[in-house]
Design a protein around this nucleic acid. Structure first.
Lengths: 239, 239
DNA sequence: GTCTATATACGGATAGAC
DNA sequence: GTCTATCCGTATATAGAC
């Protein structure tokens, strides 16, 4: 799997995301015509991500948001009942998509080594396709309400556990050498997060997501796999 | 080197940090008596870090800060001329200490493998000793002014380059296998950052900074070193 | 050096017209 | 469904007393 294939396989257009968001938030959205809602949610979400990721969600005023979306304050407030709810919608949406796609892709693989590769690639490509959402989720997590914070932590634990479980499974079956599964999963997440947190750094260096993918797979596999090939990572094409 | 030894070797008490901050900001601080300034800077810095790291610097009001420090608004404004300047002071201080300590410790080592270990450990232990500062620096970087942002990016590049240079040097001398030095340095930084960004996760799992240190050294070394020992990381005590 | 009181601007949210 | 106008709380920053 490379990024181009991933994009064809999963449908993550803005429209798709907003339609889902509408379905999940019917109660708090006063406007009822789907075509209107989807059109405006697209503007609201992308404007919020754009402004917040530049200067922080707190620092974004509703007037900023109105200017960027070309909607009035009144109109904005018919899509959410408070600024905090808008924040929660974005967080919720990112989480539920991640959960779904990750689960779908992993369950197709049974062999530990393939499962781990798939989990890593899926997470990385997902974060590439929805980079502003992932960046936002990470940076604004601490500004959530207590209840929402618990959900965010649970979601973080959930994805980490996916990696940890695969590693444990692979060790039991002898595919991987003995390493601390939790710590290994933890640093895998850290490397995945770096991609979407420092996107402009990698863009400046002209590192593509596929190059980054190959690199971290090689890095992780050299740690948990038994054999060591000693080949420069970029000459191994089977990944 | 372990964390206890590191702490003895470098002096990073709050007083030391604040005395340095006073020296660096004499012009913008209206109060002149050192003993007073140091005492109040300690309160201002620790309160700012405490409140900001919980809910963000933007969301911290000067009234919050006054309550926590037990200083009035008027008193606060005699230590900085604006909220933004307070932010810049914290960023500047963290950076200059990092630069100094990192440089001092690395130049004691000449052999690439030892240099790399020292660089990783020093950075990790430094971030442990000043965890709130590092967390703050990372999370509030995007709220800085354009000029300050450039300094932050330069500082990030600087530390990454330290790792990259050591790796390049080690490859030239044959101590390390051929890997992309820049990407390797990049993920090393990502792993180091995870420690101070997710401190509460690691605390909850009772992972000590020394355990984490051993783990990431093992991880990195299995990638760049020629020999593979296949020993569980926690049985290797020579690190 | 530190305080209280206040100037002035901007924030989120709502009411009611169209 | 969307807009304009407005309420009211809170923000940063300063002035001037002590």
């Amino acid at each position: 799997m490379n990024y181009a294939e991933f994009q064809k396989q999963v449908c993550l257009s803005r429209q798709d995301i907003c339609r889902q968001a509408f379905a999940d938030n019917r109660k708090s959205i006063r406007v009822k015509k789907e075509i209107t809602v989807v059109k405006n949610l697209e503007r609201i979400f992308s404007a919020t991500l754009k402004i917040s990721n530049k200067k922080g969600f707190q620092a974004m005023s509703m007037r900023d948001l109105g200017r960027e979306t070309k909607l009035s304050m009144g109109a904005l407030y018919s899509y959410f009942s408070s600024k905090e709810e808008l924040l929660a919608m974005l967080q919720h949406q990112r989480r539920s998509i991640t959960r779904r796609i990750l689960q779908e892709n992993i369950e197709e693989q049974s062999e530990p080594a393939a499962r781990l590769r798939t989990a890593i690639l899926t997470h990385l490509y997902l974060s590439e396709a929805m980079q502003p959402w992932f960046y936002f989720s990470y940076m604004e997590a601490k500004n959530l309400s207590k209840a929402e914070q618990r959900l965010a932590v649970a979601s973080e634990r959930y994805t980490e556990q996916i990696f940890a479980d695969i590693i444990t499974q692979g060790q039991a079956s002898g595919s991987f050498v003995t390493r601390d599964p939790q710590l290994t999963a933890s640093v895998i997440k850290a490397m995945l997060q770096d991609w979407y947190l420092k996107r402009s750094k990698y863009a400046g260096r002209k590192i593509s997501v596929d190059q980054y993918a190959r690199f971290i797979l090689k890095f992780v596999e050299s740690f948990i796999s038994d054999v060591k090939e000693n080949m420069p990572y970029n000459e191994k094409s089977s990944l």
